[in-house]
Computed example of a mutant assay.
Amino acid sequence: MNKQTAGTEPALICEKCGIKLTLGKVTLAYLGSTFPVELYKCSTCGLVYIPEELANGKMKQVEAALEDK
């Protein structure tokens, strides 16, 4: 995905479909647990953009907590 900044909201474009990603509800799953979150996704193919900060921050904390149980 290409990231282009326009104002305060980034314009994220799906590399597969070439259209702008929009915020939408998605369900993340890990080790049998599911988490509803709002992330940028492609309305055509469903590809979801997970920002690096989320992947290395909150998601990493949740992953560690679930693995410790």
Rank of each mutant, 00 (worst) to 15 (best):
K58G: 00
M59V: 08
P51D: 10
G24A: 06
P10H: 01
I13W: 01
P36E: 04
K16L: 03
C42D: 00
E9H: 06
L66K: 09
C42Q: 00
E38P: 01
K41M: 05
Q4N: 06
A29M: 06
Y49R: 05
E52Y: 13
Q61I: 11
E63Q: 11
G24T: 03
S43P: 03
E63H: 13
L12P: 04
G46L: 09
A11R: 06
T22L: 14
A64E: 13
P10I: 03
P51S: 15
N56F: 09
P51R: 10
S33C: 08
I50Y: 05
K16C: 11
L23P: 01
L12N: 01
T27R: 09
I13D: 00
L47W: 05
L66V: 15
N2H: 09
A6Y: 08
I50G: 02
E38L: 06
L39C: 03
K3T: 14
E63I: 13
Q4T: 15
Q61K: 06
C14H: 00
K3Q: 11
L23K: 14
E52K: 12
F35V: 12
V62A: 13
V37N: 01
C17N: 02
D68R: 15
C14K: 00
G7A: 08
K41H: 13
E38H: 12
I19K: 07
L66P: 04
V37S: 02
E52D: 04
C45Y: 12
A65E: 13
K58E: 13
L54K: 01
Y30P: 01
K25A: 07
I19W: 01
A29Q: 14
Y40S: 07
L39P: 00
A55L: 12
C14V: 00
K25Y: 03
C14N: 00
C42Y: 00
E15I: 09
C14P: 00
D68N: 15
P51E: 11
Q4K: 11
S43C: 06
K41D: 02
L31D: 02
E63Y: 10
G7S: 08
